[in-house]
Structure formats: structure tokens, C-alpha cells
Write a protein that binds this DNA or RNA. Structure first.
Length: 641
DNA sequence: GCCGACACAAATTG
DNA sequence: ACAATTTGTGTCGG
């Protein structure tokens, strides 16, 4: 459970470094599913991609209100809300970021310590709470949950809106109070799989996970019990709030232009009959509801959990890739701390007219140079077309044409293709090189002044700066989940895939990755459900302590952070030297922090690898190192002399 | 600049 | 294989 022992320290260094540098941060859950966190300013992923599902910020207990007594035993019962966000929030640079226009999913159940569901439903309960300085007691008709959003500072409630799957064609509605019976919470994967089920067979399979059918259990509940006072026959075990959005009217920024922070709240409460209560109720900690019979009821808050502060990005184009350009950079020499300094220097010379407000993304933080204002977004220009074999058409060529015509080239000779893997980036780069060089020399002949003049340093001193730049529009790089590619040919790095000159198809080996190891060791339960904790105190401890322990608001214990580039280094294999992938995975653990932080790069491992190679006095040929934080592609020398 | 509405496109679902 | 569905986001116009 504790990840803070010595052998993990090197890992943590890497992770911390990686934390600042990765395009996609992959968190592996205990059930083997992954959450892939990425910045939508930097990377566009298809709407229905499974990468859009991800576990969001953890909840912490924020309030306890009433007291619930089991009428049979006279004992207090101990309740626990089990909420989770399954879509809509990315962990970017230690902040939780959602999009105003996009859906999020919040699921929650609740559990009662030391009760089976049957035991629980066979009894009746009484709630005692204080409202308006008066102590009130009433029988509970049923338990229920609701969700809310608030601003972090003012504590103003923010409206939430839900859509049907039909979105614009269907109605909008506020998230409703959801009567619940106790249950564990289905795992993230189950929520994913159940998200758009229409097939009746599938629905039946899901049914027992999500619903409790009172009529089917009649003989178990012959006497008066709480089950009888639940509103519907079909009672939910899990509240699923899907397709939720913040009200479109919310202002996501403060007047100072700083991000406003929001929190999502989950409230567990008990619904009682208003008639059972005396006096005035101020409704500070309860809401009025309508009872099944039509009478007035009260939803009495029992317990509340909330998220850490959330950032909601608005509709500004600056929050989308359409306004961005990424850069692929290649280096011809081993990166080092010095190099990185130099690079940073270079960066300063590149203007960043776009976003000043990008500190949430590490790459940008490291390289404050977003160079070029993206061309106006064009609906139909998301596809890069190029021909793998035809070096006459370079990416640069393409971009130029595209910029002029506003449409992708498609003259029938070339294969339309979206860039999805680094292999493809590689292809683009390798095929375009000759032309690029040509263009470069042409430019030189014409006496063009290079953008990086004055920035020469040892890495590039042998090449005119004008030869170094090519750019790839970020919009044109879209990454697909792993299962789109034949497994034996790729290296899985988060959800990115690279051709891997290596047999192991690969995640990170046990020994090499303590966290992964822990994860595997712990991953013993096949159940879809999370276990009910059998100790109240531990609940609290787990909730709060792990919150404290968490770094970047991810639970240490529940995850293995497998960063895209942190462990393997690899290269683009242009010359069959397939032995050049270092198998010294273990050594990755000792990558000095300075190396890891040296370059704001989504392909840091290449640089890391370079460094190892240098250490070993051996440098592989044909490595292309790319740096998405630069504003241009810089093509290194083809080989080292 | 913000927002509603409509539109497009791409992965999933059946 | 194919069509329908779903959802991120591009775009227009008020």
C-alpha cells in the first residue's frame, strides 16, 4: 500500500519528470483499465474514442449531517458514499480539467457497514438531525443521492444540465434525486461498457449490477421494512449521472481572467415524510421532495463528498487544438541538461502569440513558445494526406498547399491518411526529408533569414537553422487506442503506439516498475465491484489519508502511473539495427531528474535513451528525437559520424 | 466575447 | 460489412 519506500524513489523522480512532459498520462487501474489524461489543447481525440473515458478526480468526505439509527437494533449505522467520475476530467499538470461543452459522467453508490443488502433492507431506520437549532427525528422512507456543483470560493451553487443520448433532439434536465439501495460501485470498465447499451441482451446482463427489483424479492421482505417505502419497483443500486454538463451560462473565469474553480458534490440523504417533522424547517441541510404518494417529503442530508477544485475550460478556441501548432523536433545529438538549457534559450526567441494561460500543461510550461497561429480551423481539413512512398510530397509541401487551398490534397495518387502513430510521424519525416533539404537550400540561396538565427549552439552549429524547421499541425495528429494496431509490432506507451524493434509487445516489466508490480500483485479480485470495506475507521482513514498522500491528486495506492515515455526508449528503425533498443529497463529507474526534465518532449525516452547511449559511449544511428514543445520540426542529421 | 443552434466527423454499437 | 448512434468540437450568426 505504501509507495514511499526507498526503491520507489527513482520511479517517483521519473514520474515527476514525466508528469511535466507527457502528452498522455496513463493511469492503470487495478482492474487493468486505463485512464488516459491528455490536454485537449494539444491533442484531439475522436469523440467516441475509449480514451474519452477516464476516472476523474477523487472525492473526499466534506460533511456529515444527521444520524441514522436502525430501529431493530437501536444502533447507529455507518454510511459511506462511493462516488467516481468516469468521463470528462483530465488530470493535467496536477489540475483537474473539464470542458464546458463536453459531457462528464458521475456515478455513485453507497454502502452500509456491516450489513448485507438484504439485512439492510429488512429493517427500518430513523434519522436524527438538527435544523434551525431544533433536533428533529423521523422515520426514513428511503435513501437517495443527489449531485451538485459549486464554485470553490463563493460556494454558490452552479446548475448542472443533463442531456439524453439524443442531445439537441432530446430534452435537457437537471440531475435528479436518485433513490438508492446500498451497493458497491461497479468498476470503471463496467460503467464504460454500460454507457450506451441498447441491445436487450446486454441490458439484461447489466441489470443486476444497476437495479434492484423489489417485486422479484417479495418473499424475502414480508414484513414492514424500508424496502417497502422506496418509491419505485425498480430501484437503482447505482446512480449514474451521464451526459452531464455545467450550465452553459457559467463563467469559467474570474474577472481577473484567472480560472474559476468548481467542485462537484455528492450528497447522500434520507427521505422522510414532512408530516413526521414538527416546526419550521429552514432547509439548510435538506431539500423538499415529492413522496411517492404525492405528499411532501424532505431529503435530509446525511453525508457529503466533494472533488478537489476543478477547472472548466470554456469555448474559447484557445482551449482547442484548432488554435495550436505543435512541433516535432529532431535532434542530432545527445540531449543533456545543457542542451535543454540551450533549447530553452531558443524557445525564448520564438514568440508565443497565442496562449499565455497555458501553465496547466507541462510542455508549454517548459517551452513557452507557441509559434504560429493556427490557420483557421476547417472542418474538412483534419486529415493529413500524404504518400508514404512518395518523397516528392513532403509534409511541408502539404502544409503549404493546404494553407493555400484550405483543403487537403487529394489528387487520387496519394493515400488519405490520418496521422495516428509515431510511426506515421516518422514516415512523414523520413519521406519529406529530401524535399525539406531542397527547400532549405533554396531558402539559403535566396538569402532567407532564419527564424532561429543567433540561436546556434553546439547541437546545431553544423546546420543552418533554416534546415531545421517543419511543422505539423496538432490537429493532424490523432492517436488511437492500442487495439487499432497489431500488438506484436508495437510498443505500447500509454495509448500511443510505436513500432518497436523488439519482441516483447510490452508494457513495463514488473521488476522495472515497482508501481506496476504492486498493481499486478494486488489485482487479485475478478469482481466487477469494489469490495465493501469492513471497517468504518479505515474508511475514514483511507479517504482522508490517501487524500493527503496523493500526489497530483491521484491516489498513490490505487494506481500505477505509467507514463508514455518513462521506461522504454526506442527509436525509429530506419536501418534494421534492431538491437538498439536498450533492454536495460531497470536503468530507466535511475534516470536523473535533470535528464527527465531537460526537454519538454513527448518523446522524452528518446532523449533518455540518447543519454544512456552516451553514457555507454555508444550512439545509435538514425534516431529521430521529436519534441512537440517546439514550434517546428527539426530534422537532425541522418546519422552520427 | 459569449452563447444557441446546427453541422461534421469518427468510434462505437448492433 | 454496414447503418445507426453518440459525442467532441468546428462554425455561423445574433
Amino acid at each position: 500500500m505504501s509507495d514511499t519506500n526507498d526503491e520507489n524513489k527513482p520511479m517517483q523522480v521519473i514520474e515527476t519528470d514525466a508528469d511535466r512532459e507527457k502528452m498522455i498520462l496513463t493511469k492503470v487501474h487495478e482492474d487493468g483499465t486505463e485512464s488516459n489524461y491528455f490536454d485537449k489543447r494539444k491533442l484531439k481525440i475522436a469523440p467516441r474514442s475509449t480514451l474519452q473515458f477516464k476516472v476523474g478526480p477523487p472525492f473526499q468526505l466534506s460533511n456529515k449531517f444527521g444520524n441514522v439509527i436502525d430501529n431493530k437494533t437501536g444502533q447507529n449505522i455507518s454510511l459511506k458514499i462511493i462516488p467516481r467520475i468516469d468521463r470528462g476530467f483530465d488530470n493535467i499538470d496536477n489540475e483537474w480539467v473539464g470542458y464546458k461543452r463536453n459531457y462528464f459522467t458521475l456515478v455513485t453508490s453507497f454502502q452500509v457497514r456491516n450489513y448485507s443488502i438484504e439485512e439492510f433492507l429488512q429493517s427500518t431506520y430513523q434519522v436524527t438531525f438538527v435544523e434551525n437549532f431544533f433536533r428533529q427525528t423521523a422515520d426514513i422512507k428511503y435513501f437517495a443521492v443527489k449531485i451538485k456543483a459549486r464554485t470553490d470560493d463563493e460556494y454558490t451553487e452552479i446548475n448542472l444540465v443533463q442531456h439524453t443520448a439524443k442531445r439537441d433532439k432530446g430534452p435537457q434536465f437537471a440531475p435528479e434525486l436518485c433513490p438508492l439501495v446500498p451497493s458497491s460501485l461497479p468498476k470503471h470498465q463496467i460503467i464504460r461498457e454500460a454507457s450506451n447499451v441498447r441491445n436487450t441482451n446486454k441490458m439484461k446482463k447489466c441489470d443486476s449490477t444497476f437495479y434492484f427489483h423489489r417485486d422479484l424479492e417479495e418473499e424475502n421482505y414480508k414484513f414492514h421494512c424500508i424496502l417497502k417505502t422506496y418509491p419505485n419497483n425498480c430501484i437503482q443500486k447505482v446512480a449514474r449521472y451521464e451526459r452531464v454538463q455545467f450550465a452553459s451560462s457559467i463563467n469559467v473565469k474570474k474577472p481577473s481572467q484567472q480560472n474559476k474553480h468548481f467542485r462537484l458534490h455528492v450528497v447522500l440523504g434520507a427521505v422522510v415524510d414532512r408530516k413526521d417533522l414538527g416546526g419550521n424547517i429552514d432547509k439548510n441541510h435538506c431539500d423538499e421532495v415529492t413522496l411517492p404518494g404525492g405528499g411532501k417529503g424532505l431529503f435530509v442530508y446525511l453525508q457529503e463528498m466533494n472533488t478537489p477544485p476543478l477547472i472548466i475550460r470554456g469555448r474559447s478556441p484557445s482551449n482547442y487544438t484548432s488554435s495550436q501548432r505543435i512541433t516535432l523536433r529532431t535532434t542530432s545529438m545527445t540531449p543533456s541538461v545543457t542542451d535543454s538549457v540551450n533549447q530553452e534559450d531558443m524557445n525564448i526567441n520564438s514568440p508565443n502569440p497565442l496562449n499565455n494561460d497555458q501553465k496547466s500543461f507541462p510542455i508549454t510550461k517548459k517551452s513557452p513558445k507557441r509559434q504560429k497561429v493556427g490557420r483557421p480551423a476547417k472542418r474538412k481539413s483534419n486529415v493529413i494526406e500524404y504518400h508514404n512512398e512518395d518523397s516528392r510530397f513532403s509534409k511541408a509541401d502539404f502544409i503549404q498547399k493546404e494553407n493555400i487551398s484550405g483543403t487537403p490534397i487529394n489528387d487520387g495518387r496519394r493515400i488519405a491518411k490520418r496521422v495516428q502513430t509515431f510511426k506515421e510521424v516518422e514516415n512523414i519525416m523520413s519521406t519529406q526529408l529530401p524535399l525539406h533539404e531542397k527547400l532549405a537550400s533554396l531558402r539559403e540561396q535566396q538569402g532567407e533569414i532564419t527564424e532561429y538565427q543567433g540561436r546556434e549552439h553546439r547541437v546545431f552549429k553544423d546546420r543552418p537553422a533554416s534546415r531545421r524547421t517543419l511543422s505539423v499541425d496538432l490537429k493532424d495528429i490523432e492517436l488511437k487506442p492500442l487495439n487499432y494496431l497489431p500488438k506484436d509490432e508495437i510498443c505500447v506507451i500509454g495509448s500511443l503506439a510505436l513500432n518497436l524493434p523488439m519482441q516483447t509487445p510490452v508494457k513495463i516489466g514488473k521488476k522495472s516498475h515497482k508501481r506496476q508490480y504492486d498493481l499486478l500483485e494486488r489485482n487479485t479480485s475478478d469482481e466487477d465491484m469494489e469490495d465493501i470495506s469492513d471497517n468504518t475507521i479505515r474508511w475514514v482513514d483511507n479517504g482522508l489519508n490517501s487524500f493527503k498522500k496523493s500526489r497530483g491528486q491521484l491516489y498513490d495506492q490505487e494506481l500505477s502511473l505509467v507514463y508514455n515515455m518513462s521506461t522504454y526508449h526506442y527509436k525509429f528503425d530506419h536501418c534494421q539495427s534492431r538491437d538498439s533498443i536498450s533492454s536495460k529497463v531497470d536503468r530507466s529507474m535511475s534516470i536523473p531528474r535533470s535528464i527527465g526534465t531537460a526537454l519538454g518532449s513527448i518523446l522524452t525516452p528518446l532523449k533518455v535513451a540518447d543519454d544512456f547511449f552516451q553514457e555507454k559511449q555508444w550512439m545509435p544511428n538514425n534516431q529521430i528525437s521529436t519534441d512537440l514543445s517546439e514550434t517546428s520540426i527539426i530534422q537532425g542529421k541522418k546519422s552520427f559520424a
